[in-house]
Write a protein that binds this DNA or RNA. Structure first.
Lengths: 196, 196
DNA sequence: CGCGTACGATACGAGACAGTCTCGTATCGA
DNA sequence: TCGATACGAGACTGTCTCGTATCGTACGCG
């Protein structure tokens, strides 16, 4: 027969607790005991749903990934700023420390990190790659720039600072400043910006 | 009396083993047993020299940090490429995975990460800041660029790729390409055909 | 030579953790 | 109402780790 159905609320609580603790302490320091305690459930309840700690973490990350903040139209400059703003906003939520946690996992738990890269990071990168390619085709970005170089330039700076200085050390204007710096370049004889 | 002196060779072996394992597995997964085994010493020999695992790791990192690859003269472009080349070279040695390991430590072990940032990263950044400031003063870099933004732009891109793709996924020409892209900027060299 | 210390080996205590299991209770569907 | 299942609580096993302690031995210095 059917019996008592599983509590969807417990599912949510477990996933939330898992992500929160991940961001606070990292994979190796999160215990199933701690997850259960924060979620307000018994350990057995977790193991009834996921076979192992690894499986729980992977699934939790996959579930709570925000959908693309998508399809801003307008000048490429504004689109890029919007994307970086989105990243900054996410970093300031509880899940903010998840990225450095996964960077650490590239060392301590490569399969987990690879899963994160392939499932979470890569789709977003692909979207951005598409965006940059389009901008190049429309003459909004300089020809001859490697698409991946451009993306790394734009993302790397923000992420580097976020990871090492923390979200609170990055002010709201940072994304715009970085995008403008990347577009205009650091050299003195800057190319004519559109309109000038 | 003097007695038997401590073996300096053991010191080296322990520090080397510590750094190697750190880069391979991360702080939390390195056990004193493993360090002792790889160094070919007994655990007691380690504890005779360092009071704890934390102390060992901190000291090991401090000891084996390469001196600045210093004072390249010439155009700022070449100096920057040289610096990024140096970073890439270090990343390909055994200590290469130490950086992502420390990024992970910002989550799982903040004091350790902060020590790394302050003692290892910050001096190098200060050196680079000085370099950039000079270049701006000499008109080699555009005025009005925030110095830290410029540094993050240059370093972030390389580190981002190194961390997530691994040192082997970055080819030798990457530093030069990134520096050139950052200097020249991503914007087109002629005004875009707006509205197209 | 021989004293004093470092050394390797190994045992040990304390505690954390993953994962399993059992118990009695709560809650659904039929 | 009743059967079936989920649930919280917690005991339990086996493993791992840090850090300490205790051996007998190796080795340098006076």
């Amino acid at each position: 027969m059917t019996g008592r159905p599983r509590s969807a609320q417990a599912d949510d609580a477990i996933v939330d607790a898992t992500l929160a603790l991940l961001g606070e302490q990292g994979f190796d320091r999160v215990s199933m005991d701690a997850v259960a305690a924060r979620a307000g459930v018994a350990r057995a309840t977790i193991y009834r749903r996921w076979p192992s700690k690894e499986a729980l973490v992977i699934d939790a990350v996959a579930r709570r990934t925000d959908p693309f903040p998508d399809a801003v139209t307008g000048p490429i400059r504004d689109q890029l700023v919007s994307i970086l703003d989105g990243i900054l906003a996410v970093s300031r939520t509880g899940a903010g420390r998840l990225l450095p946690c996964m960077v650490g996992a590239t060392v301590s738990n490569p399969p987990l990190a690879e899963h994160y890269r392939a499932q979470i990071l890569e789709p977003r990168r692909a979207r951005m790659r598409h965006l940059v390619r389009n901008a190049v085709a429309h003459g909004e970005l300089r020809r001859g720039v490697d698409v991946d170089d451009a993306i790394d330039l734009l993302l790397g700076a923000l992420l580097y600072r976020l990871v090492f200085a923390g979200p609170d050390a990055v002010d709201d204007g940072e994304p715009a400043r970085l995008v403008d710096a990347a577009l205009k370049g650091l050299a003195p004889t800057s190319p004519p910006a559109s309109g000038s």
